[in-house]
């Protein structure tokens, strides 16, 4: 019997090694270890052996069984491994192909600029407020100390709906609304649509956007205004941009100033873009809130002072992104919008 067992073992191992498929291994298992398997049958004969031989044979039989099972298991693993490799090879794809079912959408560059500025000012403690696009002549001009004969009131400059109602020409009326609605201390920012009677061309549009800022408190000075403007110019355009405050005139501020920033091309050294001056066109207007305006809003100019600033966002956006034609902002060509 011992010889038999060893022979079975060798046969089984040979069958295992000769197997071509995973199924074959299962057949080998059945052939040798199944209910009618060769080893099983031999083991049944063990009862016919003399008593003294049984333990030895039994042990050998166990060894044979274990070895066959081990070979079977390893054989299975080898097959599985091979199948896996075949699969990996078969599942090759061309990773250089680009499939785009949907592209992400984009923010409009103008609104992007506005949001960035709003966030900057919010971080400085400013509150964002909104004002109506259709305003009263009172808030747009009168309350802002604009003289009756100021050319900006003309039909050639402003869109009117009635004698008393117009499309706001700047965001400054929001100052009036804010000051009438809230008590100092005030730090507000307001961005929005504004309208002027301008034909559409490369740099003009009848509808454009402005951002207005207003701070009213005790002890607000022009030095504060200068500092605040410097901070957000650096934020918008980078640390190496300088500012120049030029005395100017607005009916609703006194003193008033216009602010230039360094030329974007040469950063202030002087070049052909800025005609050698080193400065780009004016960025914004600002000044200390005129005492008459404070009074109209019920704020005591003896106790409180304030500063205000306003800027055209369309031009800032165009400069920031290198857009050379304002019409692009309102034509909304998809190929334009996708660039931002």
């Amino acid at each position: 019997m011992k010889d038999e067992l060893i022979r079975i073992k060798e046969e089984a191992i040979s069958d295992i090694n000769g197997a071509n498929r995973l199924d074959d291994l299962e057949n080998v298992r059945i052939k040798y270890l199944g209910k009618k398997g060769k080893l099983t049958l031999i083991l049944r004969e063990m009862g016919k052996l003399p008593k003294e031989e049984r333990p030895v044979v039994g042990r050998l039989a166990n060894e044979v069984r274990q070895e066959i099972e081990k070979e079977l298991s390893e054989g299975k693993d080898r097959f599985k491994e091979r199948l896996k490799q075949e699969r990996i090879e078969k599942e090759k794809i061309d990773i250089s192909i680009n499939k785009r079912t949907r592209k992400l959408g984009h923010s409009h560059p103008l609104l992007k600029t506005i949001r960035e500025l709003e966030n900057l000012f919010i971080s400085m403690g400013f509150t964002v407020v909104e004002g109506p696009e259709i305003e009263t002549v009172e808030y747009n001009f009168d309350a802002l100390n604009t003289p009756e004969n100021h050319p900006s009131r003309d039909l050639s400059d402003t869109f009117y709906i009635t004698e008393d109602i117009l499309l706001r020409t700047h965001t400054s009326p929001v100052q009036i609304r804010a000051m009438k609605a809230m008590e100092p201390p005030l730090r507000i920012i307001s961005a929005g649509r504004t309208f002027r009677f301008d034909d559409v061309d490369d740099t003009h549009s009848p509808m454009f956007h402005q951002l207005e800022g207003l701070v009213v408190d005790e002890n607000i000075t022009m030095a504060n205004l200068i500092d605040t403007i410097n901070i957000f110019v650096k934020e918008l355009f980078g640390d190496d941009m300088k500012t120049r405050f030029r005395p100017h005139y607005f009916p609703f501020t006194e003193p008033s100033a216009e602010v230039d920033v360094s030329c974007f091309s040469c950063k202030g050294k002087g070049c052909s873009v800025c005609d050698g001056t080193g400065w780009s066109m004016e960025l914004l207007g600002c000044g200390m809130v005129h005492p008459k305006v404070l009074e109209v809003c019920g704020i005591d100019p003896e106790k409180y002072t304030g500063f205000a600033f306003g800027m055209g966002i369309d031009r800032i956006t165009m400069v920031k992104y290198g857009i050379d034609n304002i019409r692009l902002l309102f034509e909304n060509d998809n190929r334009f919008l996708e660039q931002f």
């Binding site: 400013f126 964002v128 201390p185 408190d217 607000i220 504060n224 500092d227 120049r244 405050f245 030029r246």
Partner: peptide
């Protein structure tokens, strides 16, 4: 000369800015 006015940061109560 406005350019001769030394800039001074705003001082005041530390408030949190808000958006509508």
């Amino acid at each position: 000369g406005f350019h001769n006015i030394a800039a001074q940061p705003l001082v005041g109560v530390l408030t949190r800015g808000e958006k509508p």
